[in-house]
Every structure is written in C-alpha cells, then in structure tokens.
Design a protein around this nucleic acid. Structure first.
Lengths: 327, 327
DNA sequence: CTGAAAGCGCTTACAG
DNA sequence: CTGAAAGCGCTTACAG
C-alpha cells in the first residue's frame, strides 16, 4: 500500500491542507513547514494518488486516443501515438487507447478529459460517437464535413504537398503523371485527389487516378497496373498515396519490366523507414508523424482549460518532401 | 455534467445502496424496486463514474502498456497493441500507454492495476522500473534473467520456429544457411541465435551469424552483405530476424545479382503485410501479434485477482510459418 | 500561516 | 429487502 497524503500529514504533525499545498507547489505554508513536509515527502516516497485528485477535481488527467481498425499498418499511426504519448507525459497527462468501437454492441467510451482522433474516416461510427460527446476533441486532419466539428484540427499541407510532387514530376520531364490511392474514405485521400485534379486542370493534363484494393493479391494488382503504366501511353510518374503502398507498387512495377526511378518515377505520399530502406530508395512526403502527434496533444491540452471555441482551432504541421532515388 | 448514482437514487426514491446493487447486477433488491431503478437508469442514461468506483475499490480499472522507443517500427508492436486493447475492452478495463521512460529525468509510472511489457529489452531502464514495482506484470517474451521475474510470461515458440525454418532450408537443398539479426538486446534475438547454433551443431554446419546495424545506409549494408552471400562460398539461405529487415535485405540482395527465392532463400523472422506485399512474397514466421497481445491481456486480467505466483505463469502462443515464394 | 471539514461518486459492511 | 453511514485519497473554500 502506498503512503497517503493523510499519513504524511500525520507524520509531519500538520494538516492535510498543508501537505496538499506543498505537493502542488502552491503558496500558503511557511518556508519552515514546507521544508519539513518536503523532507517527509521525500523520505516516504509519497506519490499522489491520481484517482483521489481526479475525483475531487472532476478531471481524470487522461485523454483518449481513438485507434481505428484500419489505419494501423506500417507504423504511421504508431509514430503518431509515440508523439502524442511523449507530449502528454510532459503535461502529466495519461494516454488511454480506445480501440475501434465499430463492432461493439454497446458503445462505451471511457471517461477522459478529451479525445484525439487521428485521420478520422467518414465511415467509422466510432468517430461520430466521439465527436458527438460534449468533450474537447482534437482531430488530426479534419473529419468529414457532415460530422460535428471538433474543437481543434491539426493539419498537414496535403494540397500543397501534392502540388509540389506533381510539379517535381513535371520538372523531371514526366508527361503523364498519375495518382494512386488505396480504397479509403479519409479526408487525406480526398485532398490528394482534389489537389491532383486541380493541378491537372492547370497544366491541361488528363487526370489518371487509380484506386487500388490493398486486399487484392500481387497478381491481381499487376493486372490492374499493367495497362495503367503501359510504356508510351500509360503513366510515367506516380504519386502513391497510402502508407506502405509505394513499396508494394515498386515491386509490382519491377515485374512489369519497369525500372523505378528511371523508366517510371515513383513518390510515396507517406514516408517511413521502409522508403529509406527500399532499393531504390523511395522519395516520399514526410508527414512527420511524431510532430503531428505532438501537435495534436499540445492543442488538446491547451483546449482543455477553455470553453469550446466557436470555430475549430487549426494548427498546421509541415510535410517536407524527402528526395531519394525513385522520383 | 453526467448524472450520478445519488441523483438516480433521489429520483427513484431509494437509497444509493439499492441503485449501486442494481447497477452492478448484485442481489439484495426486490424485483419490483429493481425494475423501477432499471427504468430510471435507462431514462437518464446513467453511466458509472469510473473514478468514484476506482477510488472506492482501490483499483483503477486500467492497465499500462509500456511503449519502448525501439520496437515501434513496421507495425508489429501496433498489432500487439490492438490485440491488447480489444481484449481489455472486453474485460471493461482501460489501456494506458506508458511511453519509454529511458530519457525521463523523473521516472514516474501512472497508477494502474497491472502492466504489460512487450518484448522487453535488457538495456531499457524503464523495464526494470516496472518490474521492480509491486504490481502484476505480464511480459511478452521473457525479460532478461538478471531482472526481477514478472508474474506472467506469454511466449512464442522461438526456438522451435527457428529450427523449423532451418530444417526447411535444409530440405530445400541449402548448404550454407545463415542467420541475420539486427543489433538488439531482446531475448527474442537471443533465442533465435541459440536455436540456430544448436541446429548448426546438430547438422555439423558452420554457424554464419551476421548482425546488421539498421541505421546504416543501403550501400554500407550491401558492402557487409556482399561477402556474406558470395555465390558458392557464402550463405545460400537466410533467416532474417527483425521486423521489416527481410524486405530491406531482399532489395539489397537484388542489387548483388541474387534472385530471392531462386539463387538464395530468404525467410523473415517476423511476418507482416509487407511480406505478403513484397515481390516475390516473403516466407515468414507469423508471430500472430494480435493473438499474442490478446494472450498478454488475458493473462494479466487473470493475475489481477490472485496473489503473486511463486514462479511466473507461462502461456504459449503459436507462430506458424507462412510459406510464400522467397524460401 | 494553519487546520477542521466538506465533498468529488462510488461501494460495502452494518443495523433495522 | 432496505437505508444511513463510513470511507477510498484528494483539494479547497472557510474560519481562526
């Protein structure tokens, strides 16, 4: 059993008030008493019981991070989590992982002071449940417009990054750049496509968008990709959206007798160690997931103490292009 | 403000005792009163305040999952987390993510009822801090023997899987199979090496162990790998331990004019979507991370209500070999 | 500067 | 079957 505030007070021969004040670094105790209490705190190894404090303050000291069933592959989500967890820790706040509640009979959300939603998918019922609660919610990338507004939004410059990628393709002499997406419903994918179509219109290019089903086999995908990257008439440069998909596409392109970086340019919309480790190394948009997660956490913490803003607070996080050999 | 037990009791005109009993499905209230209370519970949308309950019961209703800075790449850890989170949710228990405390000035562990350690590294100070606490701890793969014993251990059949892989290599006609590890200090890596050396002794093969530094560039690694896989004298079959490393090695082998699956066999010690997506698809040991995580959670939950076992409770989780084209 | 006391929301002996 | 009351560990007006 851990030692309690009351016990410390008894030992020190003072009131719990005094001890509490000292523990929380507030004024109201004489320097002399403070020193005596501090010594005992140290000796006994006293650690505040978060539960007692939380109950008294009607605050849990924890925030929830919603973990969708989908976006959990290849480490992006994980990196974001690390960023969130580290930042929260600095603010003495706990991180509660809330698994996808899509398939739960009774939707039960644990009591937390606020929520972080990473790349909310419009078809995820859990997202709506969380947004409907009267709790501070920060969303990493904006949720669908049909959903209630979150309190805050941390956003990557997806439109701008996409334009940058295609400008680069153009500059490298690509004639028929295309956009590859994976079957999903994130605002992220939507933004990429919007930016790409805008860019195509601007440069009078015919848009070439291909949506891949990641559950398909390599052979099936090869069949779909073959005509799309047909020499002379097919794409000669590809932005591959979707975490990890660029590596897979690179492998398939190889079987289609393409040399990535030479006969065809390839850039990944999501960077990860995989892109650096691939042969050839794959140029990628670095969404800086740790910084992104940290920004989500910072924003939520700052929102915890304020009334709900009338319009979501928006915070940008950069997404530099990591130039490598593939494009 | 959410409605409280007391308010429900007031509305129903009964004591909080009665309401508490009904909420927790315990006996001690007449069927009539129970029905009246249930109706009000339903009407008001009452939800128990976990904090009040936790404080009263001296139980937080949450367990911690330690998140090491290292093992977070490529999704293995993430999958384990999903398994843990889903299982805990079924037991009405929250999951708290505790980020690596290696670089923290003050090591502060949040109050939880128990802890889960995934693949503890012997050089991680946070692991020791957690094991030294007088709390139920379940470890996914055993921690270093120099550390205090956890209450429970969930383990993959690493020795057996490794032997199975090398038997397969032998059966495929490989003459000089080798083991590739990444620079780390997990008991997992140690078990792989031990099994490999045991297997080599049994089959009178010269052990060929190579430890790769994952932080090195592809070129550097290529320089290290070239002599190791030299045709005729170097390895002709490789078990690549370490999440994601097999994909990287496959790419480098290609630049060394090897055809993976043909001129050289390659099996990954950790399966992931990457292996399935690679061209050619990579045979891998499926550590079944979700099941592994679920097993950790189940074990911890069961240990929460009992006194500390004299010797760690061990639970096995299978690790089938997923046969694909690479080896 | 200091302490006694109330109360956050809950569970659980205990008495009726 | 039922309710009044204590108490989990803490913070915070309030009075002295």
């Amino acid at each position: 059993m851990a030692i309690t505030l009351t016990e410390v007070a008894d030992i020190a021969g003072v009131s719990t008030t005094a001890v509490s004040l000292v523990v929380n670094g507030k004024k109201g105790v004489s320097e002399e008493t403070r020193q005596r209490i501090l010594a005992i705190l140290d000796d006994t190894g006293y650690r505040v019981n978060r539960l007692g404090r939380a109950l008294r303050q009607s605050r849990t000291g924890s925030v929830g991070l919603y973990m969708p069933n989908s976006a959990v592959h290849f480490g992006y989500y994980n990196e974001v989590t690390v960023g969130v967890a580290n930042t929260l820790q600095q603010h003495d706040t706990s991180l509660l992982i809330v698994p996808s509640i899509s398939n739960q009979p009774r939707i039960e959300v644990p009591s937390v002071d606020g929520f972080i939603l990473v790349e909310p998918h419009s078809d995820d019922p859990g997202v709506e449940v969380i947004l409907r609660q009267d709790l501070p919610v920060v969303s990493g990338d904006a949720p669908d417009v049909t959903l209630p507004d979150p309190w805050g939004i941390v956003e990557s410059p997806n439109f701008q990054s996409t334009v940058e990628v295609f400008d680069r393709f153009l500059h490298q002499g690509a004639e028929r750049p295309g956009l590859l997406l994976i079957d999903q419903v994130s605002s992220w994918a939507a933004e990429l496509e919007k930016a790409y179509r805008w860019w195509c219109a601007k440069h009078r290019k015919e848009p070439r968008v291909l949506v891949l089903d990641t559950h398909a086999s390599n052979d099936t995908l090869a069949g779909v990709l073959r005509p799309w990257v047909e020499p002379t008439i097919g794409c000669d440069a590809i932005l591959a959206g979707g975490d990890g998909i660029a590596v897979r596409v690179a492998g398939i392109l190889r079987t289609l007798d393409h040399r990535v970086g030479e006969t065809i340019k390839l850039i990944s919309g999501v960077d990860s160690p995989l892109m650096e480790f691939h042969t050839p190394r794959i140029t990628a948009v670095d969404l800086q997931p740790r910084e992104f997660g940290a920004a989500c956490a910072e924003l939520l913490i700052s929102l915890l103490d304020q009334p709900r803003p009338t319009v979501p607070v928006r915070v940008p996080v950069g997404a530099p292009l990591r130039i490598r050999e593939s494009g």
